[in-house]
Simulated assay, not measured.
Amino acid sequence: MPLTRRRGFWWIAGAAVAVVLAAAVAATAIAFPSVAATTCPGCYGLERIAPGVYAEPGLAPAERRRVSEVLEQADERIRAFFGGRVSAPDVLVCLTDACYSRIGGGGERGIAVLNRSVMLSPRGVDPVIASHELTHVELHARLGGADVPQWFDEGLGVLVSDDPRYLTPTGDRCLRDPRQALPDTLDGWLRAASADPLTYADAACQVSRWVTANGGEQAVPGLIARLASGQPFPAAR
């Protein structure tokens, strides 16, 4: 093939690849706006207000302080429970419903996106909600690709965040005694929790009792390290 024709061929091929990639990016943004928003917060109108923290523009100084204080308190809860922190996810914070809808949020207070980033709604700018979602990210960062049942993931989030909706203040922390096996999968969990929000309390009860039976909070990092090394999840129910 002559040089000029080869150049033309590669130019066309390159252009075709660029078009396909652009289409893929656009499809992701349309189908999964939360993923796209956490990848490019600025593309969704958010501005960086601190390292790894993005919020809608125009926040008043008091609102910025509130966001900062919430995330500092959440960070303290994570570090206290795990004995440190290995994750550093981006956190997208919205103080209006319009902002949260624009970045792909729904009716939830907050969400961990792909267990790598966190989005907080106006109702989720709270140390409990923030630390719950950040616990998911911290857990999976420590697991290094290993997996845990969804009930353990959610129950741990409740326990670390010390969520008063689903835990008693003292004792074994259980609001009610779980009577049936809890969902292992995300789909199963979403169905169960939608039907009965106290499924979170049941999961927290299971995790809390496992922690107590195994020597306290320091048992959790050890369990995670064993799972990350390839050991199976124990029969913790």
Rank of each mutant, 00 (worst) to 15 (best):
F233W: 14
P183S: 11
V220R: 03
D90F: 01
V158K: 11
D97N: 09
P221D: 11
T4C: 00
V67L: 06
H140F: 15
D147E: 15
A22P: 00
V86C: 02
Q231G: 03
M1Q: 00
I111K: 15
R179K: 14
H136M: 07
E63N: 03
W11G: 04
A141T: 13
G230P: 12
C99D: 01
W151D: 12
L227Q: 10
R173T: 07
A203D: 11
R65S: 10
G45L: 05
G106Y: 04
A50M: 04
V125F: 04
A201S: 15
L186M: 09
D147M: 13
L71I: 00
P61F: 07
R176P: 02
A201M: 13
P127T: 07
A193I: 14
C205I: 07
L71N: 03
G58R: 07
Y100L: 04
A37R: 05
A80G: 11
A55M: 08
D163E: 11
V160N: 11
A112N: 13
W210K: 13
L167F: 08
V148A: 13
E56H: 03
T135N: 12
L190K: 11
Q150C: 09
L227N: 10
W210P: 07
A146H: 09
V220S: 06
E72M: 10
L159C: 08
V148L: 14
T185V: 03
A236D: 05
L198I: 03
P221Q: 09
I103K: 12
A74R: 04
V53W: 02
N115D: 15
R65F: 00
W10N: 01
P89Q: 08
R123N: 10
V113R: 11
D75L: 06
V128C: 09
L95I: 02
R209H: 15
V70A: 05
A204T: 07
V70M: 06
A235L: 13
T28E: 14
F233Q: 12
L143V: 04
A24L: 14
V53N: 02
W189K: 06
R6K: 11
N115E: 13
V91L: 08
A60N: 01
A219S: 15
A29R: 15
C99R: 11
G222H: 06
G58Y: 10
W10Q: 05
R6S: 04
T135K: 12
A24D: 04
L159G: 00
S131Y: 11
P169M: 08
A22C: 10
G14W: 10
E154Y: 04
S229A: 15
T199L: 15
A130M: 08
A228I: 03
V20N: 01
A195M: 09
Q231E: 15
L59I: 04
G83F: 03
T168M: 14
S87P: 02
L3F: 09
Q180F: 12
S34V: 02
W210G: 07
G105I: 03
A74W: 06
P89E: 05
G171Y: 07
G104W: 12
A225I: 01
L139M: 14
V207K: 08
A24S: 11
G215Y: 05
T170D: 15
G144D: 05
E108V: 10
Y166A: 06
Q218E: 14
P51R: 05
S101C: 00
W11L: 15
R64C: 00
C94I: 02
V220D: 09
Y100R: 03
D196Q: 13
V211L: 07
